[in-house]
Each structure stands twice: as structure tokens, then as C-alpha cells.
Design a protein around this nucleic acid. Structure first.
Lengths: 219, 219
DNA sequence: TGCGAATATTAAGTGAAACTTAAGAGGTAC
DNA sequence: GTACCTCTTAAGTTTCACTTAATATTCGCA
């Protein structure tokens, strides 16, 4: 479920991107109309949150394009509170909803939910290496049809390795993936997690390169 | 295209009737719930503009009835700005839109156009996962043929989980589904509701992923 | 072959997350 | 008004993921 946020106010956009991600959306962000056109992908984009006041043109044209091409994309318009005319034009052009600025993020989420309820496109991102399949949505890992329930850190670790099949990841790199760059690890936590993972996975799934790091084999 | 306006504020109603007629609608006007029930005609009425605060009962019951009977009628709810709960419940019962009072007539017209453009209206349907069956319209849940009467919040929670079978929902996501932008939860309400739900459902229906969220199993 | 460093293995301890329970506020129906 | 239902809070308890630390093992290199 991909969402395109078109908003030129950098500060606002940053905050929104973060909280939208927390809500489970994969978010693309465009600050200009040109960028938006570029990032918009009819197959993958499911929702567009569209600010109208853009530096390089009127956001409405993007909406018009989406509707003309009949792409199955939900569009929510953001407008300043007083531009009633815009709202109406927007709704008539086929926006699914609009939201006057300023708004509560929660309200945006609620409206997004209403809009996407119609489309109901289910995309669960999955990752597979050899006999190991990982499903982000359900947070499960399947090995030869048997499903494992991995704790958070182990899941992240395995994900990092699977996303980098055939590439060696140093312990430092792995640490950075698992921990916010807030806390220092004073111990061998990574090694312990690797150990736990190995007990649950087929043999030789994770190889050690002494002094270098860990890899998952390509085949 | 027949439109039923349910609004007890006579002054407001008169104004609306006139301007809606100018917009090209045939308008029926009901000032009470009883009148509304009487005027509502499944074959002819296409849109209902529904004020919730009525002298002789809750307008929501009308909406519920329309959805339960699966009549193809679009419903837009009017509410005072502060009755947030109403809006949410309304949308969950299948209202197509709501409009906070006070509003611009132009805005109502725009939304009416959006709703009637959709034509085939979203009728809330049934949902089944494993032995659990949920009927949105009548707000009931059946487990192995036995029917449960779930309180509103528990129902919503279960609905959220059932609509996302196999997908993990964080507590944050669930909170947003249940509470929208009205209230901040300062507590463990979600956990408590989950607890109550589990006592009523078959074992292992809802799984906990520590630090991540909750899932309902796919199989 | 033997030594040191890197990694593996265990087991225990800690803290945070989730569970459980119960009390009380607010609403509704009778 | 009273009784009931629902929801939120809060406190106490339990559970479990994660870290830590202590010990064992392996590996590379002389």
C-alpha cells in the first residue's frame, strides 16, 4: 500500500511522512508537482495526499490527470481553511475527500482509512531467500512451509541479512540496523541473536566471516 | 433523483429545501424520525441528508436500518462539530460522508455530488474468518453458530483485526481505528479490550507479538 | 602445535510489555 | 431514582525479549 504525499512545506511533510509510516504506509514524498508526476505510479500508488499550493503549479492538474486516466487511486486534498472554492472544485474533479489546514494527523489517518476502504487493495510485502520466506505484514517467517514466530530483534536481524543476500554485513552494520543510534551496545548481543537465529533456521544459512561479519548465502 | 432531508431545525431546513431544489433535487423534508421513516422510500429515495439530533430519537437508527436492509441509498450525516463520536460511529455504520455544522450549502452540494456519483453505494457486508462471522449491518458476531453480543469498542476492535487477517496491527494503529482524532488514550484501554475479547472468542484467535502488535491468524 | 583473538554457547538477571483485576465514571433504560 | 452496561484508569502481577556476563570453542597465524 503505497501513498504519495505531495506537500512543499518541508517541516510538515517530514512529520507526516514519519507518522504515516508508523501507520503502516509506504510513503513517497514529493515537494513539487514535477516530482509528484515522476513518483506517481499507477500500479503501485494507492493514495495521494495532495497539497494544492505548490511552487511549480497547481496540484489540481495532478488530480485531473489521475481521474482522466481512470487510475484506481484515492486522492485527498489539503487546503487552507478559507479556500472553499478550491474544495468544491476539488470534489467535483473527483477528489475523494479534502482536509482543511491545519489538521490533526489523526484526522488525516481516519479519512485515509475511509478512502482506502473502498479500494481494498492488499499488498503484503514479502521477501524470499532459498527456503526462507519472510512476510512483513504478518511478521512471520516460513521455512519449508513451517512458520516461525521470531522475536523483534531476531526478525530485524534476519530481515537485514535477507535484504543483503550475498553481501557481508559487519557487526557494526547490523547494530546500526537494530538499534537507534542512541544506545551503545556494551556486549555481544548481536552474536547471541545470531546464535538464536541459527537454532531456528536450516544449517549454514548464516555464515560467519571471522573478523569481517556475517552473510547469508545467495542460493 | 429524490432526496430526503431529515432536520428538525425548521429555519435551517426551509433554507436547505429551497436551495436543494434549486440544485435540481426533489426534496422531501422530515422534522422527526417518525416522519423520516414514513417518507423514506427504498425505491425512490436516493440520498438522505441526516441530522442526528432529532426530537423523537437518534437519527443513527435510520442509517442502521438503511444499511441493514441494503437499500442503495447514499447517506450524509450532519453533526455539530463537537460530537466527534457520532461522526465516527456514523462512518462505521456505513455513512458515505458527514458534514460538521455549521457548513456552507455549497459544500453540502459538492458532497452530494460525490456521493451520488459513486452510484453503487457501499453496502456494509459480512466478514468471516475461521469460525467467526461478523455482520456489520446488524452489528452482530457469530462464533460457531452462537451469537455474541459485543460492546461497541470490542466490536470495532474485532472488526479491525478481521479486516486485516494475517497483518499485524500495532496498538497505535488500533487506537487510531477506535478513537480517531477525538481523544488521546492515556492508558491501556486497548489491552483491556483485547483481554475481554479473548475471553469471548476461541483460544488463540488473537495473537500477541510483543513490542509489535496483535494479529489474527490467517488460517 | 600452541597462543591469542574472535566467535559460540549457556545461563541468569533485568526491565519493559502485556495481562489481569477491579474500581469508578458516565451513560441509558426502566 | 435505581439498576445495568460500557468504557477508562490504575495498580498489581506475570511473562518474555533482550542484555549481560561468564565460560567454552573455534580459527588464523606464527
Amino acid at each position: 500500500m503505497r501513498l504519495l504525499l505531495v506537500e512543499d512545506d518541508t517541516l510538515l511533510a517530514q512529520g507526516l511522512v514519519r507518522s504515516l509510516q508508523k501507520e503502516g504506509y509506504s510513503v513517497d514524498h514529493a515537494a513539487t508537482l514535477a516530482q509528484a508526476e515522476h513518483l506517481l505510479s499507477p500500479e503501485n500508488t494507492e493514495l495521494v495526499v495532495l497539497d494544492l499550493g505548490l511552487p511549480d503549479g497547481d496540484g489540481m492538474s495532478l488530480l485531473r490527470k489521475i481521474r482522466r486516466k481512470k487510475w484506481p487511486i484515492g486522492v485527498i486534498i489539503l487546503t487552507a481553511r478559507d479556500r472553499v472554492e478550491d474544495k468544491i472544485e476539488g470534489l467535483d474533479l473527483g477528489a475523494d475527500d479534502y482536509l482543511p489546514k491545519p489538521f490533526e494527523p489523526k484526522e488525516l489517518f481516519a479519512r485515509l482509512r475511509v478512502v482506502s476502504r473502498r479500494g481494498k487493495l492488499v499488498t503484503s510485502s514479502a521477501l524470499a531467500v532459498g527456503d526462507i520466506e519472510m512476510d512483513m505484514a504478518s511478521h512471520t517467517v516460513e521455512v519449508n512451509g513451517e512458520s516461525l514466530n521470531l522475536p523483534r530483534k531476531e526478525f530485524m536481524l534476519l530481515k537485514a541479512l535477507m535484504e543483503n543476500v550475498g553481501r557481508v554485513l559487519s557487526k557494526e552494520q547490523l547494530e546500526n540496523k537494530l538499534y537507534q543510534w542512541g544506545e551503545e551496545l556494551g556486549s555481544n548481543a548481536i552474536e547471541v541473536h545470531i546464535h538464536h537465529l541459527r537454532k531456528k533456521l536450516p544449517e549454514n544459512t548464516i555464515k560467519t566471516l571471522r573478523g569481517i561479519g556475517y552473510v547469508m548465502g545467495k542460493k
